[in-house]
Structures are given as structure tokens and as C-alpha cells.
Write a protein that binds this DNA or RNA. Sequence first.
DNA 1: GGCATTCGTTCGTCTTGACGAACATCGTAA
DNA 2: TTACGATGTTCGTCAAGACGAACGAATGCC
Lengths: 189, 189
Amino acid sequence: MSDTGPAPKPPIEVIAASLRAERVRAGLSLTEVARRAGLAKSTLSQLESGTGNPSLETLWALCVALGIPFSRLVAVSRPQVQVIRAGEGPAVGSEQSDYRATLLAASPPGARRDVYSVAAEPGPRRSSAPHPPGVVEHVVISAGRAVVGVADEPVELHPGDYICYPADVPHVFQALEPGTRAVLVSEHR
Amino acid sequence: MSDTGPAPKPPIEVIAASLRAERVRAGLSLTEVARRAGLAKSTLSQLESGTGNPSLETLWALCVALGIPFSRLVAVSRPQVQVIRAGEGPAVGSEQSDYRATLLAASPPGARRDVYSVAAEPGPRRSSAPHPPGVVEHVVISAGRAVVGVADEPVELHPGDYICYPADVPHVFQALEPGTRAVLVSEHR
DNA sequence: GGCATTCGTTCGTCTTGACGAACATCGTAA
DNA sequence: TTACGATGTTCGTCAAGACGAACGAATGCC
């Protein structure tokens, strides 16, 4: 469910819709966007109508002209508001130590990050096995103290402190005070 | 700095590197990937060497063959460990009320999220103008209480509570207690 | 009304990307 | 050693995409 499978949609139509949507949203004319992107109007017209198979260069020029990140062209969907109260939500426990991570926002298909709430108590050092390659974890301490980071050189963090480290190598989270809380963003790119 | 500008890199080279990296990561030969994607070996060879300007169809076929999301092709870089102590880092203030957001992890080129630490004091309701379309914000309360969410129907949150809402519409963050702290992930997809 | 400007679409031409065969290279087994 | 299979590269051919001119339609200005 937090996989990273390829987006399953026919790409041309998605991009066609995105292009037109982004353009009108920016309040630009087709002619103007084509001019900024250095493309022929005809090319853009055909793309927005779902005809054709644009080259990377063409798509890139359009992203620059529209001022949008590349990934915007292949993403769609409109999210909802969701609230998870403290203590609710699926929790991932640990046998090694008193450590509980609650999944707040699972990575939807095509997205690349999970958001966790972490509650930990002092105990033996808890080290995580490496995650798949490319995973980065961000941790912000909410309360207490903890030693966090890659297993080789972890860092002691206090409330408000932030750390970012690659998680595809062994890494640790060890609470130093009772009631230690943190927010963890696991970003698999 | 938290803008949504397109990744400023020459895209062909980035994709070339990504393609080769993903392929060897999957333990596949160039010939095999080309076969699965229904492409000519020569095409893939040229792409991995940074030559050429692939069509969308070609790129898509490769994503499917490699089992990776489209966006993986435009993301790169290998991160370092970075620590930002409480109070450090670039802060974004607000004149409207006592609200300070510290940028912890800016979105690297091709990535899609900013991580902020938020400190706010009670005061008049602080509402943010809509962000670019597609932006989603995740908020976890560390301390205090706050009213958060879309301007129409905000939600009162307590420590440990989590909310996720679309940020391309007007939204608010209003502290209800002194010393209110939160972690905010702004995700622009 | 008449003229000008801008919009987005359609069509013919030419550049360019994808193909497939041939190639050099390496590793393995007969 | 020779033969075979698999790897990844280079080169000529062909189809497909990008271009630019021309078009009909809509709006604004004199």
C-alpha cells in the first residue's frame, strides 16, 4: 500500500488534461505559452487535444514556461481533509524497545512519503534495518530528547531540533527521556 | 525558496542517470529491459548515454518495464545527514500574528515537499492565501492547541493530533495556547 | 461598418527519434 | 583454441513529431 508502483494511467491523456488545466489556471493563452516555451502553437494545440507523443524536450520546455515541476504533469486527483487524533491510527510497534510509530499519511500511489508520529521511551538502542535504496527520513523532535541518525554517527536532538538522514543504511532512534515524541517523514524517492 | 519552480537541471542527463541506476538496481541487462519495454536496444543504449530526446511513449514504456513511477526518472541526488537545531534555520514570519515557520528541508529539484517547524502564539486568526494548485499540507501538533485546516471548516487540534488538507484553497493556522508548536509538511505534487 | 488583433485549429514540409542489423567485447564451455 | 551466447555500442533507414504558414472565429478599436 505504500508501494511505489508506476502510475497506471494512459499518460498522454493525463498530460493533455494537465497541460490545459495548468495553462488556464495561469491565465495564459495557448499562443503565449507556446511562445514562452519556444514551441509552435500547433504542437501545443495538438498536445492539449491529446494527440501526439511529445518528446522530453518539449515537455520540459512546457514545464519551464508554465513554472510547474515536471511531476505535476503526470499527477492528478484532488485530496480531502483528514484528521487523525493522538493515539488513533495504525501503529507500528517494536519488540526491541518502547517505540511506537503511528502512520498518519500513507504514500498514495505515485507519491513518495509517509508521515509518522513517533512515541518512544528510554531503553536499549533501537536500530532499524536499512530501508529500500533512496529512502530519506526527516525527524523533528516534539518533546523529550533522543539520539537519532545513521547508526555510525547519531546525533542527540532536543525539542524543535531537526535531522535529515539517508535511511537506506542502518539507523537508530533512541529516546533519552520518558515521553519523547517526534514527527517522522519517510521519503522514498 | 519554497516555490514550485521546475527542476532547473538538464533533464536528459538526469533521466539518463536514473535509467541506468534503476536498471542496475533491478539487476537487469540493457537487452532485457529493452525487450520488456518493447524498445530497440539501440534506443535504450542511447538514452542511458545521455544522447537523444525520448518521446513520452518511450519513457512510459521504460517506467513500466522497470516498475518505477514516472517521477522517479526526474529525481536524483544522494542526501547527506543534516541537523538544524531549534531556533536555527531560515524563518518565515507573519505580520498578521505571532507565527513563525522555519524551513527545515526545502524541496530539492524534482522533489515535492518542504518540511517546516512552526511556532505560534494566540492571536487573530492567521489565514494563508492559497498555494499553487495541488499543494497538500500535513500538520502534527507538538505542543499547545491550534485551529488548523481549510478556512471554511478548520479543526481544533491537540498535541499528537494530525491533519491533512488541500492548501490550494484559503487555510488557517490559529494558535489557542502560548507556546504552540507544530511540524508542517507542505507537499506540492 | 471596417479594420486590426488575438485566439485556437488544420495542413504540408522537414527535422528527428525509434528501429533493426551489424559490430566489438567479454565470459563460458566444449 | 575454438565456438557459442550474451552484453552494450554504432550506423543507415523509415516513420513520427515539431515547425510554420494559412485558416476561420471572436473581440476590440477607430
